[in-house]
């Protein structure tokens, strides 16, 4: 499926959650949707899933608007941070409801995952711990096999081992059947190797949309004397910089081969760190 985002804007009272953003997404791909709290990620995912309407602009999925469009929304599964399910329902009832809604639903996988995560089919949602409720969300997202599956910070309360299990099954499922997965998370270090492309949002704008390996290749940190670094970066695109005792480190966007010719220490930047440098408020000067 193809997603086209056109001049998308969403205004809540006087705050622009999304400010005129445009881009497109394609399958099969695993996208990482990154950004600080309040960047507009969740609003974007809710519009994409057809849950809310934008103030201006539109999202088209295979040329159609997802809002109030069941034919389309049965191809989209959004798992949020919490409150995905009604508290009075039992796990097996939830699985049954979703199996009716998603034509691509995989009941065998769902049941397999329920026992893998040690959940009881007869347990009610309201009796589950935070971690168990998150596990249920993950199970539904994976078993939906929806052509567009969206995970918005899906694992509150899940411990590291349970998260690792989730990544492994996600990858396994993706290998068997390619689809579009949009993954929003703050635990970037854990999943950055899964992303084929990353989107970085800030203040309702799309700051960057790039192939993850390209990003690893085209961003670097150089360290040297303040003079030398200042001299090198004056015509470069700088993400941020810091100094200590006559030395300076600058985070640069561009071809790192240029830096190798000079007397600098050149290092790559992990995606998580890059995200922080790109989106942190510049304090002082």
């Amino acid at each position: 499926m193809k997603i086209e985002v056109k001049q998308l804007t969403k205004v809540y009272k006087d705050k622009k959650a999304l400010n005129n953003i445009s881009f497109s997404l394609e399958e099969p791909k695993i996208y990482g949707l990154l950004g600080r709290n309040g960047a507009g990620k969740t609003t974007f995912m809710e519009i994409l899933s057809g849950h809310i309407l934008p103030t201006n602009g539109k999202i088209l999925i295979n040329g159609e608007n997802p809002f109030d469009n069941q034919k389309l929304t049965e191809s989209i599964c959004l798992i949020k941070e919490g409150n995905n399910f009604k508290g009075d329902l039992k796990i097996k009832e939830i699985l049954r409801i979703y199996s009716y809604f998603y034509p691509t639903w995989d009941q065998t996988l769902a049941e397999e995952l329920v026992s893998l995560y040690n959940l009881k089919q007869n347990a009610k949602v309201k009796s589950l711990s935070k971690g168990m409720e998150s596990a249920l969300g993950i199970i539904v997202g994976l078993a939906s096999k929806a052509p567009i599956t969206i995970f918005d910070e899906p694992y509150i309360g899940l411990d590291a081992a349970a998260r690792k299990l989730f990544y492994e099954i996600l990858l396994e499922q993706y290998e068997q059947e390619k689809r579009m997965i949009i993954f929003s998370t703050h635990l970037i270090d854990e999943v950055s190797l899964l992303f084929e492309e990353v989107l970085i949002m800030q203040d309702g704008k799309l700051l960057m949309k790039e192939d993850t390996d390209q990003l690893r290749d085209r961003t670097y940190a150089i360290t040297g004397t303040r003079e030398a670094v200042e001299g090198f970066i004056h015509d470069k695109q700088i993400i941020s910089k810091k100094g200590l005792a006559g030395m300076m480190t600058a985070y640069v966007y561009g071809d790192r081969k240029q830096a190798r010719k000079n007397d600098f220490q050149v290092e790559g930047i992990p995606i998580q760190e890059l995200m922080i440098h790109l989106t942190e408020e510049q304090r002082g000067a």
């Binding site: 099969p28 791909k29 695993i30 990544y167 492994e168 990858l171 396994e172 993706y174 290998e175 190797l193 899964l194 992303f195 084929e196 993850t212 390996d213």
Partner: peptide, 11 residues
């Protein structure tokens, strides 16, 4: 490779 390193198969 993807399963061993937990990386995207396209990569």
């Amino acid at each position: 490779f993807a399963s061993f390193y937990k990386i995207n198969p396209a990569t």
